[in-house]
């Protein structure tokens, strides 16, 4: 590991004030410390923000404000999260292991990096790690990489489960930074790779996530489901956060679908959502909506399986949610 200096910030404002080029903020460290050990992350200054007083889950005028330093475990078992946002509790609980959830923070979960094997191997080219060096995944092992929204420069996926649920819940990410405070509505935090895959998010240097705020839950039933290679402690091949509200006449009154494991960002299936509104809440309509969303997919040779897997997951999940 390359030498760095370590300091603990006294407040969010103090962290932003002390930020300078070469600085990285440290949360629970479950991804960053590993990336430093691999030589992928090479901070000169490590500024610890994990003990800032941003660790409360509070109700503010019918909304739920979750501090950036709240540990994943504490978010998932919070009574209000379990009662009002079960999809979010479920998404967090399906991520990582008990130990890692105890350490990992909410902001760190959002800002974790892709697990693409080429990104994590400094002996290989990678446009995300070393812009302009190339993307060996396109010709190589991309079996768990993107089928939607990728570019010729990068086919990485975002690994978070929590972010997928937050995208469906239209959570707001609260940020402070050298340019002042701002609010980023999900799924707007993460970006598609385009020709700048080194940028995972729309954050600017020095920006610090301070909280995630959840609006009141949308009407309807919700589910988070995840398909993976083993029953626990594995990243998603495909995952879904879905909300379905069916009117008395059996038609879809409201619908939200966010997909994980398919793109560089949580993927809001807006096309499918639009198509479903007003249609009967039946398997046929769900299948048509899933297929129209996935028409945009551009699978690579070794990850084409994800398209029918995503289609079936959308249809099965909506069928389970329909009354």
């Amino acid at each position: 590991m390359r030498p760095f200096d370590y300091a603990r910030a006294a407040s969010a404002a103090d962290a932003v004030r002390r930020y300078r080029p070469g600085t990285m903020y440290l949360g629970g460290g479950t991804n960053l410390v590993d990336l430093m050990r691999l030589g992928v992350a090479r901070p000169e200054h490590l500024l610890d923000v994990s003990r800032l007083p941003l660790d409360a889950v509070e109700e503010v005028r019918g909304r739920l404000r979750v501090g950036a330093a709240v540990r994943n475990t504490d978010l998932a078992v919070h009574p209000l999260v379990r009662a009002r946002y079960p999809m979010l509790a479920r998404a967090v609980l399906t991520g990582a292991s008990g130990q890692i959830r105890n350490m990992a923070t909410v902001a760190g979960n959002l800002l974790q990096r892709t697990r693409c094997a080429y990104f994590q191997d400094v002996s290989r080219p990678c446009n995300k790690r070393r812009p302009g060096s190339g993307c060996p995944a396109i010709e190589g092992d991309h079996s768990n990489l993107a089928v939607l929204g990728h570019s010729g420069a990068c086919v990485a996926t975002h690994p978070s489960d929590m972010a997928v649920a937050l995208a469906a819940l239209e959570a707001e990410v609260h940020v402070t930074g050298p340019g002042g405070d701002r609010i980023i509505p999900m799924p707007g935090l993460h970006r598609l790779p385009g020709d700048a895959p080194e940028r995972d998010t729309v954050l600017e240097p020095g920006d610090l996530v301070t909280a995630v705020e959840l609006p009141p839950p949308p009407p309807g039933a919700s589910l988070y489901r995840k398909v993976r290679e083993r029953a626990s402690f594995a990243f998603a091949l495909v995952s879904i956060a879905a909300v379905l509200d069916v009117a008395a006449d059996g038609t879809v009154a409201g619908c939200r679908i966010a997909l994980g494991g398919l793109a560089h960002a949580p993927w809001r299936a807006e096309r499918a959502e639009r198509e479903l509104i007003g249609r009967p809440a039946t398997g046929g309509a769900f299948l048509a909506a899933a297929e129209s969303e996935l028409e945009q997919a551009r699978p690579l040779p070794r990850n084409a399986y994800k398209v029918p897997m995503a289609r079936d997951l959308i249809v099965n999940t909506l069928e389970e949610l329909a009354p």
């Binding site: 440290l26 460290g29 490590l46």
Partner: peptide, 11 residues
């Protein structure tokens, strides 16, 4: 419980 390999001692 925590993974001590992922925790920096200084933190």
């Amino acid at each position: 419980r925590a993974n001590s390999c992922l925790a920096l001692a200084v933190a």
